[in-house]
């Protein structure tokens, strides 16, 4: 993990005391009112959330989760797995049982707004976890996380494309 402050203003926090953040209470020597003292930039590069599937650029029509992952898909605004998708997870259960850690990532399409999409992604990941557990995969091995709409495999703006993004990936 690398976090470094690459720029810190010499004026810094001492100059940010007014009624509003950027207005400074005291004038400078020329009698001018100082406005908008400088702020920092935090570099989180290398501290990426890009675990499985993240490649730093948006997808363009690919339907695979990528990086050896398996994916199951959901209907619009739903976290219910179809029989077909449950069967897919059942088929993988024996392989999953041999793994020490299984990561399930829930995703959504771009519709809906911010928090709701992350909650929907989580509910989808949870549905996959529950199905795995029902097939004998130990619950303690399964890590669940939602990436909401941040991890699309497709951005073509078509119905099929949006469907590809309503998914949970597991590995």
């Amino acid at each position: 993990m690398k976090n470094s402050i690459i720029l810190v203003s010499t004026l810094a926090a001492l100059l940010s005391l007014g009624g509003c953040t950027q207005q400074v209470a005291s004038p400078n020597p020329d009698g001018a009112t100082m406005v908008a003292s400088d702020t920092v930039t935090l570099d989180s590069a290398g501290a990426s959330g890009s675990t499985a599937g993240g490649n730093g650029s948006y997808g363009s029509g690919s339907t695979a989760g990528g990086n050896g992952k398996n994916s199951v898909h959901f209907a619009y605004d739903s976290n219910k797995l179809s029989q077909k998708e449950k069967h897919k997870i059942s088929r993988d259960a024996s392989t999953l049982k041999r793994k020490s850690v299984i990561k399930v990532e829930g995703n959504s399409d771009e519709f809906g707004t911010d928090e709701y999409n992350y909650a929907l992604g989580l509910r989808r990941a949870k549905a996959v976890k529950d199905t795995m557990v029902a097939k004998g995969v130990p619950a303690k091995k399964i890590k669940v996380v939602s990436y909401g709409e941040s991890n699309p495999v497709c951005q073509d703006g078509t119905k099929n494309c949006y469907q590809e993004n309503r998914r949970a990936d597991y590995k």
Binding site: L17, C20, T21, V40, G46, S150
Partner: peptide
Amino acid sequence: SKTVIRGGLNLFPQWGDPKQQ
């Protein structure tokens, strides 16, 4: 506009105080 956090996945910024410190 100025980037204050770059790299990785960082989301849902929410001001923590009225003075925007």
